[in-house]
Design a protein around this nucleic acid. Structure first.
Lengths: 138, 138
DNA sequence: TATTGACTTGGATTGAGTCCATCGTAGGAT
DNA sequence: ATCCTACGATGGACTCAATCCAAGTCAATA
C-alpha cells in the first residue's frame, strides 16, 4: 500500500485524505471491488467522502495505470489494483466473482496482420467465463 | 432474412410483426448495433414498436443463441447476429467501432487446470483493442 | 501564514436497461 | 371463417451506475 502511495506521491499526485483512503482500500491481491464497494469501505474510514470523489480518484488511478478497470457485462465495473502483474480474468457467470489468472501463450501474437484491418492493435483482453465451485454446486 | 426467420419459426417462435422487424434489422455480416440503434431502425419500418419489445426480443435471440451480446466497456451493449461463425472482436478505443476477427490458436487451451481454481470454464472471450485507421490518423 | 489552483462535495442529471399492469393479437380449436 | 386465450406488445415509471456542475475547501508552495 505505501508502495502505491509512494509511487503516486513521486508522480506529483496531490495527496488528500480522500485519495489516501481510496488508494488504501484498493490495496492487495485479488481485490476486485465495485465503485460502490470502494465507497462503502472508504466511508467507514472517512465518513464525509463523496461518491463523486471516489469515481474521480478511481478514474485517475486508471489513467495513471495503477489500477485496471474490469467491465463485467451488465454489472458495475470492478477495479483491480493488480496492474503491474499482467493477467487475465476468470469470471463466474453465476455470482460475478472474479479471479486473476495467468494463461500461457500470447493472444496478441495470435492475430495475424490480415485480420487487423489497418487497426493499430495495442492490447488484448481475455475473459474466461464459467461457474465457480460454489455456483456449480448450487 | 429468411434463414434466421426460418430457424426461429422452426423452433416454435411465435411470429409477430415486431419480432420480424427486429430480426430483419439484425441481418448481415459485421453488424454490431446497440439496442437503441436497433430500435431506431425498427421504428423506421414499424413506428409503434416499443423499446421494451426491442429489449425483450434481443434478449430472446441471445437466449436462443442466434445473436451474441458484445459488452464494450461503458458504452451500450452491441448485438452481433454472426453467432454461427465463431469469432472474436477488435474494438476501436477511439470511436467504439467493432470488427469481427478470427485469430488463430485456442485461448481455452491456454488456461491450465492449475489456473482454473475449481471453476467450470465454459467460454473465452477475447477482445483486441486499438485504434481504427480513421482514429489513428486524427 | 497567505495564496491559489487543484480537489471535494452533494444534488441534479444522464443513459442504459428493467418492470409491470394493461391491452392486443397469432395461431390453434371449432 | 370465427372464436379463444395464452403469449406478446405497450409505454410510462423505475432502478442502477456513472457523470456533471457550481460552490466550498484545502494541500502545497512561496
Amino acid at each position: 500500500m505505501s508502495d502505491l502511495l509512494e509511487r503516486l506521491r513521486g508522480r506529483g499526485w496531490r495527496m488528500t485524505a480522500q485519495r489516501r483512503v481510496v488508494a488504501e482500500v484498493l490495496d492487495g491481491e485479488h481485490v476486485h471491488l465495485t465503485a460502490d464497494e470502494v465507497l462503502a469501505r472508504a466511508t467507514a474510514r472517512l465518513p464525509e467522502i463523496s461518491r463523486a470523489t471516489v469515481y474521480n480518484t478511481l478514474g485517475e488511478l486508471v489513467a495513471l495505470g495503477e489500477v485496471i478497470e474490469v467491465a463485467t457485462d451488465g454489472r458495475a465495473k470492478r477495479y483491480d489494483p493488480n496492474a503491474h502483474r499482467p493477467h487475465q480474468h476468470l469470471v463466474c457467470s453465476g455470482c460475478g466473482a472474479i479471479r486473476d489468472v495467468r494463461p500461457g501463450g500470447d493472444p496478441l501474437a495470435d492475430l495475424p496482420a490480415s485480420e487487423r484491418f489497418g487497426f493499430t492493435v495495442s492490447e488484448v483482453e481475455v475473459t474466461y467465463r464459467g461457474l465457480c465451485p460454489d455456483c456449480a454446486r448450487a
